[in-house]
Amino acid sequence: MKIAYSPCPNDTFVFHAWAYGLIPGAPELDVLYADIDVTNRLAAEGTGPEVLKISYAALPWVLKDYALLPCGGALGRGCGPLVLTKGEVSGMADPSFLKGRRVAVPSDRSTAYLLFRLWAAQNVPGGVGEIIVMPFHEIMPAVRDGLIDAGLVIHEARFTYPSYGLSMLTDLGSWWESDTGTPIPLGAIIARRSLNLEAIAGWARASVEYAWAHPEASREYVMQHAQEMDPKVAQQHIDLYVNEFTANLGESGYGAVKTLFERAAQEGLVPQLDYAELLK
């Protein structure tokens, strides 16, 4: 079975057991390691593998071919994207600083960017200026070097941005949680509707549970793909993004996804979505 997910520690931690044939009855995996922008595009084009990790923000455009699985993804609290600027934020802490500015984002169909647009609609009168899409690992150096005015960052950048001389203008996760009371939907696991979705969800959940039961087993695999990340940072990454919602979205998880899409649809950022489609 072909699957695509990122080389980030949370994904490799979650899928290690399945990728290494440690889940009884699960098919052998042919893994494509790809940035979320790539997997979003593959899913939208209908040319992707049977199972993919995509941004929740990309989900409304792929539900005809793919179904949302209730496990394996990233949704939680205290783990949202950050908007970063160069140097101290004193004098720039007002979000209106972004009016007319150049802002880099990791994907124009990422959950991070969707949250940023929802936040900016409330907090940046007149709107930001030019939006530039670039791989997320290039964003902080670009802000540091003055190539852009601000950057929207995700993943382990939460822990490493001070080393680039950057400061946080806003934590979009904190804003979202305080504004909605729900956790943040970030990355979704989807599978082709033509497949046995219940079985795939079971294998994915078993892989999550194996990872928790044997955390040392995946360590070499995680670090092999962690792009020279410090092991402590990799563990922080896992602790932040792999949680109860990874094993089962549950009522509160699905409710958070529904809230995200309802708000985004009100702003005209995603098409209107039949909530029942998420449960099919």
Results as ranks from 00 to 15, higher is better:
195 L>G: 02
83 V>F: 08
166 L>M: 07
234 A>W: 12
235 Q>H: 04
44 A>L: 12
63 L>C: 08
8 C>M: 13
156 E>V: 08
228 E>V: 11
225 H>F: 15
273 L>G: 02
200 I>S: 03
235 Q>I: 11
270 V>N: 10
26 A>M: 11
38 V>G: 01
259 T>N: 02
260 L>N: 03
163 S>D: 12
138 E>L: 14
73 G>F: 08
241 Y>A: 06
214 H>P: 04
229 M>S: 03
99 K>Y: 11
66 Y>V: 07
233 V>L: 10
169 L>R: 01
251 E>D: 13
91 G>L: 04
179 D>A: 13
40 N>K: 00
280 K>T: 14
152 L>S: 00
277 E>M: 13
133 V>P: 05
206 A>L: 11
13 F>S: 07
68 L>F: 11
160 T>V: 14
65 D>R: 14
121 A>P: 10
52 L>G: 04
263 R>I: 06
12 T>D: 03
157 A>I: 09
184 I>W: 04
244 E>S: 14
181 G>C: 10
161 Y>S: 02
270 V>L: 06
178 S>L: 10
67 A>K: 07
22 L>T: 01
148 I>K: 05
146 G>Q: 09
277 E>F: 06
46 G>I: 14
197 L>H: 04
242 V>I: 13
187 G>P: 02
199 A>E: 15
133 V>R: 02
236 Q>A: 14
139 I>C: 02
227 Q>Y: 13
121 A>T: 05
71 C>I: 09
97 F>E: 01
152 L>K: 06
94 D>Y: 01
232 K>S: 12
108 D>S: 12
212 W>F: 15
216 E>F: 11
274 D>C: 05
152 L>E: 06
170 T>N: 00
7 P>E: 09
205 R>W: 07
73 G>L: 10
217 A>W: 09
224 Q>P: 00
